[in-house]
Design a binder for these strands. Structure first.
Length: 936
RNA sequence: GCCUUGGUGGCGGAAUUGGUAGACGCGCUGGAUUCAAAAUCCAGUUCCCUCGGGAGUGUGGGUUCGAUUCCCACCCAAGGUACCA
């Protein structure tokens, strides 16, 4: 009976599916544990061996936790809205839903082959109306909420309205738009509905606003920053303009501080926390208002160094700053306008890339220094960003290098306010100098001066201490087809939410997936796309009458909408009445272990935390962080194969024959290479026509290829398909090998050659149970030595899994099997333990052996074996060192010994040593967990 | 530039709170079995040499009886981020 992995794996995969072995129950006496993978976007290319790495790790942990007596939730689903399916639709006309369906089927087939313990009864797809109904519902909740700074949480909008009706808005502390004017209760009550709505919009957590986007008229679409190269579109090279569009935004800035604080409470990787911290970009300082000379206008700036205010010698505004056109003097107008036009042409990316060039223009206007009353020049310069702070800075050339460079370049005064510091060559940005030349700040250090200045600013009513965040509100509209439609229609130009009982608003059918000719989003192509407020439904072929039938929102939601809450949906995936029931979410609470890529650090993982906090504020969720622990799995890289073509010929030389010859390096399919880097010269001739008649110059009768480690990608021909590996070596080998490659978090190259090691390990394991191809185990009692092997393995594997060092436990299995093989051990007790230990890693072979051992139930429900340290008594190691009259040695002792027992053993050891060395035994001092000291 | 992570044989990578560096696997070398191959098993495999040793965990210092591990400085690589006032 050979180890027939294909047969075994198919058999147990079918068994698991039929018995629903991994279906999680929402009611259980057992403690809960929720293990989650970042759900995939089902792309047309299918999975390569890099994708399942994290899934294998989480599956091992999920299976392990089941052995340890936990009720484990381990679901999977698909983030199935997205651009590729839409682009395919634009090219071929095939509906994205069909493309998505096909791709999901492929994914499912591939995933099933690897033997994951997913509970598929809870599968979610973000593009299913039953799912996006609740994404739309959450959107309406955000619309009907505002952020109360007083209670520091989101509240429903009616609490705000009630306050307005009673007291106006003078005492309301909210995170809202900046241009709010104060009104009394009487004024509020006198406003028209439309006026009220306009005001409320400034408070809502999702709101419409004019936002600048990169608009490409030729492609008829909005482009992301990285889709633009040198001011033209990456695809096609069409011109791109900055254009303002009405877009939905999410007021994520309301949560900036809590998103920052929350990081302290979750066990996530430091680099990921750091990048979220940077992204939020909290900086503490002050806002200061500068009066413009001969004008009512004030220029507000944000500074982190208010203490340097006496060093201000000019101000710089972003070219886009709204005051520029107002304050510019007649004689400077031409130059300033030319400069503004020149900057507008450059993309934000270009402006940022070009840090070296110093440019700017004097506006001709002056501001008044708030303390000295001096006139200071107002300049514009593109080193000031309109999107950060107030879009204006008070320039302190002695303390800021950019200001220094600017002043130096344009010959503006550089005033030194640092005591004993030379600023003739560069600005001094350190915070350890005493302030001088600064009136009431003279002689103070930075900290005290800052406090003083803020006090004076507040006294004068022209500034205050302020915390500024880099984080900006998130644009939530996309001019795409394949996304969630908004549950919004427009009445009198004001957005109206569609009530939850009428959701979902389903995606309409369209003829074309491109934007309309008049520049509307693709949904504008729908003939059926208006809302009937009488029957509460999308109406067909009806005219908008602005009485009962209103136009629907034509944008769709971005990719991160559906993925910002899916982890909660898994808890109660088939609930038709709620996004998740209270009972379910109170039971599962949050994800205990989340595994996925670090590329989502400032996207998905930030937005998901935001929505979680929001839903928590409304009392809909019991915890405000959705994932306790998170692990970023590394990327599996491909190992490309390179052939060398002599320049200008069709002759290919083997790697070591290249020497100094001029060659072109071409990548060839890794499937054509054997384990010794040798190219199959016959097969490559059929692979691509250009090799058909090529000449290959061999070394030692072989053509040896070069190797390069790089990202797995079709274009490098280095993609390895897991299906092929499963076919040739089995899923268990694939699982073990992916873990064996190296630490989970690390990026590492794939090399199919190495899989033979884990594969032959599985064959050895199989042979432990088989004698002359007959299944044979002995019921005799195991020897101490055999028990030792098992227990060492239990201890190590248990530790490894808890530490997520799955790679080292594979080595531990190999050592165990080698030792048992040498001991010719086929004792039932030992082998049973081993099977359970291995089952999270190689579940199929474990199930097969388990059932052959006579068990009726699946091994997945078996208890993890318990480590008994008493079996390890004999293992002791010592490291003797003697110095300075002290004797030190380390003894490895069994874990179940008491201090007294240890002392006995150590004294015995010391006696022997003393006897050997012909001296008196010394006193023994036990320091638990440390090297044992024997003091003379 | 800044932040983060890392740097160990031909390769992937082990090494507990500082305690025999290189576990385990790949590859390679030799051997057994075989008509032969596959498969399997056994032995060897950090480097250098004069076969007795010597050097060795990116580089240079330091702490220590003892450092891959801790401290300082530097070099290199990967990821994130950037005129952030």
């Amino acid at each position: 009976m050979e180890y027939n992995f294909n047969e075994i794996e198919a058999k147990w995969q079918k068994y698991w599916a039929e018995k629903q072995t991994f279906k999680a129950d929402n009611n259980s006496e057992k403690p809960k544990y929720y293990v989650l993978d970042m759900f995939p976007y089902p792309s047309g290319a299918g999975l390569h061996v890099g994708h399942p790495l994290g899934y294998i790790a989480s599956d091992i942990y999920a299976r392990y936790k089941r052995h340890k007596g936990f009720n484990v939730l381990h679901p999977q689903g698909y983030d199935s809205f997205g651009l590729p399916a839409e682009q395919y639709a634009i090219q071929t006309g095939q509906h994205p839903a069909i493309t998505t369906e096909t791709n999901i089927a492929t994914y499912r087939k591939q995933l099933d082959k690897i033997g994951f313990s997913f509970d598929w009864t809870r599968e979610v797809r973000t593009s299913n109306p039953e799912y996006y109904k609740w994404t739309q519902w959450i959107f309406t909740q955000l619309f009907n909420a505002w952020y109360n700074k007083e209670s520091d949480k989101a509240e429903t909008i009616d609490t705000l309205v009630a306050t307005f009706e009673k007291d106006g808005n003078a005492n309301v502390k909210a995170v809202c738009d900046e241009d709010i004017t104060t009104f009394t209760a009487e004024e509020w009550n006198a406003f028209s509905n439309k006026e009220k709505e306009a005001i409320l919009a400034k408070y809502r957590l999702t709101y419409l606003s004019e936002t600048e986007v990169n608009w490409c008229p030729a492609l008829g679409t909005v482009l992301a920053n990285d889709e633009i190269v040198n001011g033209v579109s990456e695809r096609g090279g069409h011109p791109v303009v900055r254009k303002k569009m009405m877009q939905w935004s999410m007021r994520i800035t309301a949560y900036a501080q809590r998103l920052l604080d929350g990081l302290g409470t979750i066990d996530w990787p430091q680099p990921l926390k750091d990048s979220q911290t940077n992204w939020i970009g909290r900086s503490q300082g002050a806002s200061v208002k500068f009066q413009v000379e001969n004008s009512e206008d004030m220029i507000e700036v944000f500074t982190t160094r208010p203490d340097t205010i006496f060093g201000v010698t000019f101000m710089t505004l972003a070219p886009e700053h709204e005051l520029v056109s107002k304050i510019v003097t007649e004689d400077r107008k031409e130059a300033v306008e030319a400069y503004i036009e020149a900057t507008a042409k450059r993309s934000e990316r270009e402006r940022q890339a070009d840090v070296k060039t110093i440019s700017g223009e004097f506006t001709g206007a002056y501001a008044i220094h708030p303390f000295t009353g001096e006139k200071i020049q107002i300049w514009i310069g593109d080193y000031v960003l309109a999107s950060y702070g107030t879009g204006a800075v008070m320039a302190v050339p002695c303390g800021d290098q950019r200001d220094w460079d600017f002043a130096n370049h344009f010959g503006i005064e550089i005033k030194n306010i640092f005591d004993g510091i030379d600023i003739s060559e560069a600005a001094y940005a350190e915070k350890d100098a005493k302030i001088t030349n600064s009136d009431f700040l003279d002689g103070l250090n930075v900290k005290k001066a800052t406090k003083q200045v803020i006090y004076h600013l507040e006294q004068k009513g022209i500034g205050e201490g302020k915390i500024n965040y880099r984080l900006r509100d998130a644009v939530f509209s996309r001019q795409r087809y394949w996304g969630e439609p908004f549950p919004v229609y427009y009445k009198d130009g004001m957005p109206q939410m569609i009530a939850s009982e009428h959701l979902p608003v389903r995606l309409p059918e369209v003829e074309k997936y491109l934007p309309t000719e008049d520049g509307k989003p693709p949904l504008g192509n729908a003939t059926v796309w208006a809302w009937d407020t009488v029957n509460n439904e999308v109406v067909e072929n009806s005219k908008i009458d602005d009485e009962t039938i209103f136009p629907l929102e034509l944008n769709t939601m971005p990719g991160w909408a559906g993925s910002s809450w899916y982890f909660n949906r898994y808890m109660d995936a088939n609930n038709e009445n709620e996004f998740v029931s209270k009972e379910a979410v109170d039971y599962w609470k949050e994800v205990d272990l989340y595994i996925g890529g670090s590329e989502h650090a400032t996207g998905h993982l930030l937005y998901a935390r935001f929505w979680q906090k929001f839903l928590f504020d409304l009392g809909l969720l019991p915890v405000d962080e959705f994932a306790k622990k998170l692990i970023n799995q590394g990327m599996i890289l491909g190992t490309s194969a390179i052939v060398y073509r002599l320049s200008g010929t069709n002759t290919f030389v083997s790697k070591n024959l290249v020497k100094d010859q001029k060659v072109e390096e071409l990548r060839v399919d890794v499937k054509l290479i054997n384990t010794s880097d040798e190219l199959d010269v016959e097969k490559i001739r059929e692979w691509q026509p250009q090799y058909k008649n090529a000449e290959f110059i061999l070394e030692d009768g072989k053509y040896i290829v070069g190797r390069e480690v790089e990202k797995m990608s079709k274009r490098w021909f280095n993609v390895v398909n897991p299906d092929d590996i499963c076919e040739e070596y089995g899923a268990d080998s694939l699982r073990l090998f992916e873990m064996f490659l190296g630490p989970l978090e690390q990026s590492k190259p794939w090399n199919t050659a190495g899989i033979s090691g884990v594969h032959s390990f599985l064959k050895k394991l199989w042979r432990l149970f088989h004698n002359n191809n007959e299944f044979t185990v002995s019921d005799a009692a195991p020897t101490k030595e055999e028990l030792k092997v098992l227990h060492q393995t239990i201890k190590k594997v248990d530790e490894d899994i808890e530490n997520f060092s799955f790679n080292t436990s594979v080595s531990t299995f190999m050592i165990a099997v080698n030792e048992l093989q040498k001991l010719k051990c086929n004792k039932r007790e030992i082998l049973e333990g081993l099977v359970i230990l291995i089952s999270p890693y190689a579940p199929h072979i474990a199930e097969e052996l388990w059932s052959k051992l006579g068990h009726k139930e699946s091994v997945s429900t078996a208890d993890f074996p318990i480590f008994e340290p008493s079996h390890l008594v004999e293992s002791s190691k010592e490291y003797p060192v003697s110095f300075n009259g002290k004797m030190r040695f380390k003894l490895e002792l069994p874990l179940d010994m008491s201090k007294d027992e240890i002392e006995k053993v150590v004294m015995a050891h010391e006696k022997t040593q003393a006897q050997l060395q012909g001296r008196e035994p010394k006193k023994v001092i036990i320091v638990p967990g440390k090297i044992i000291n024997i003091v003379g």
